[in-house]
Amino acid sequence: MIGYSDALEFGSETYKYIIANKDKFIAEEEIGQENYDDVIGATVNKYVSGIAKTGTIDELKSAIEEAKKDFTSPQQKMMEDNWYSTYYLAHKEYDTWFNKQISSAKETLKTDKRMGSSILINTTYRVAMDPAFEGAGIYGKAITAVEDYMKEDSEMLAGYYCLASLYKKSNNKEKALENINAFISKNAEKGGKNDQRVMALKEEIEKM
Rank of each mutant, 00 (worst) to 15 (best):
K193W: 01
A145R: 08
T108V: 04
A90W: 11
D153V: 05
K168V: 02
E147I: 11
G140L: 03
K141E: 12
N179D: 13
E147R: 14
I119A: 02
L163H: 06
T86R: 11
S85Q: 15
A67F: 11
D58P: 00
A164R: 01
S85M: 12
A105Y: 02
N122R: 13
C162Q: 06
P74F: 14
M129W: 02
W83C: 05
K151W: 01
L109G: 02
D153N: 13
N194S: 10
E80S: 04
E155K: 11
T123W: 08
A188E: 14
S85E: 15
F183C: 06
L109S: 02
A67G: 07
T96Q: 00
K186Q: 11
W83G: 10
I119M: 05
E189N: 12
E189H: 04
M150F: 06
K61Y: 02
S117V: 06
D58T: 07
T111F: 00
N187C: 04
A136Q: 08
H91I: 07
Y125L: 14
K186M: 07
W97A: 00
N179Y: 14
Y139D: 09
Y84S: 03
Y167R: 09
Y149A: 04
N82K: 14
S154N: 11
E134W: 03
E65M: 09
E65K: 15
I119R: 03
L109E: 02
Y84V: 09
K173A: 10
E59A: 06
A67W: 12
M79H: 14
E189L: 12
D95L: 01
C162H: 00
Y160H: 13
A188C: 07
Y149H: 10
I64L: 07
L163P: 01
M115D: 07
E107N: 05
M156I: 10
L120Y: 05
A136N: 10
N82P: 03
K113L: 13
I119G: 02
I57P: 00
Y94Q: 07
G192P: 03
R126Y: 00
S117E: 04
E174N: 09
K92D: 14
V127T: 12
E66R: 15
E93F: 00
A182P: 01
Q101L: 06
A136L: 04
A164S: 10
E147P: 07
N179L: 08
E152Q: 14
S104R: 08
S104A: 04
K113N: 12
A158L: 01
E134L: 10
A63H: 09
V127S: 09
E189F: 02
K69W: 01
S62R: 08
C162T: 14
M156W: 11
T108H: 05
M150Y: 06
I143C: 06
S154G: 08
F183D: 03
S85C: 12
A145Y: 08
G192L: 02
G159Q: 08
N194A: 05
Y125K: 11
K193V: 13
M115L: 10
L120F: 05
I143M: 05
N99Y: 01
S73H: 11
